[in-house]
């Protein structure tokens, strides 16, 4: 190979010489060095767009009284939040602690089938940062209420337990949690609504509403439950 920069050498020879030396140098690189170089290239290339940092989550839509939100697979309108030790029905009779109840109108958005209670509906709402809430069928206060399912879900019209949500019907539901005895009264309650995706399971061929995602949140004033006047 002709030495680069020799007196009398042509430009093309000089270029070939440089390219040749570059090829020789590149051939000495290990796989690890190639991967490192590729990573640095991605890092530099992505830096104008924020680099490899995690993207900031989009703002969560707000739940507020009387305002409808679509949280797949339902349309949801939170109407009020109440607390009390006796809701006056057998399914929520007098207890030592306290019920915290979120009332909401719920309509299924699935055009093909009912929305099942035992995945989408039971995991539709959570109450956050309410002290001393118990797990369903337990009496021990949990350190956080954020991930606790409601103790029960009742149909407000007849106080019976809710089942699968039939397509085309709108129910007023009472999502009922329990607070253990001796816990402070919640004057306001943050309610989070979770959306779900209808998909096949990874390990079998069953389809269900899965992947609960916190999709809307709002803080509601909580007041004492007033029993409906006897008619």
């Amino acid at each position: 190979m002709a030495p680069v920069g020799m007196d009398g050498g042509t430009d093309s020879l000089r270029a070939t010489g440089r390219w040749g030396r570059a090829r020789q140098w590149l051939a000495t690189l290990t796989v690890r060095q190639w991967l490192l170089a590729a990573f640095l290239l991605v890092l530099v290339g992505s830096s104008p767009f924020g680099g490899l940092r995690a993207q900031r989550a989009e703002a969560t839509p707000t739940l507020s009284v009387g305002v409808e939100q679509t949280v797949a697979p339902v349309r949801l309108t939170v109407t009020k939040v109440r607390f009390g030790s006796d809701l006056g029905v057998p399914q929520a009779a007098k207890i030592d602690g306290r019920y915290v109840v979120v009332f909401a109108k719920v309509t299924g958005t699935d055009e093909k089938r009912s929305v099942p209670m035992y995945d989408a509906l039971r995991d539709l709402l959570r109450i956050e940062q309410v002290p001393g809430v118990t797990k369903p069928f337990s009496t021990d206060p949990e350190p956080s209420s954020d991930d606790l399912r409601p103790d029960t879900i009742l149909v407000a019209d007849d106080a019976e337990r809710m089942g699968d949500l039939a397509p085309g019907l709108t129910y007023t539901l009472a999502f009922v949690w329990r607070q253990a005895p001796g816990q402070p009264v919640p004057t306001s309650v943050r309610v989070a609504a979770y959306s779900h995706t209808f998909r096949q399971a990874s390990i079998d061929d069953t389809y269900d509403w899965r992947d609960a995602t916190r999709a809307a949140v709002g803080t509601f004033p909580a007041t004492a439950y007033e029993k409906p006047a006897a008619s």
């Binding site: 093909k112 089938r113 209670m117 019976e160 809710m162 089942g163 699968d164 039939a166 397509p167 085309g168």
Partner: peptide
């Protein structure tokens, strides 16, 4: 199966 072909499952209320 209602008149529109939608499937209503039994759940715990029906």
């Amino acid at each position: 199966r209602d008149g529109e072909g939608r499937v209503l499952t039994r759940g715990s209320r029906n």
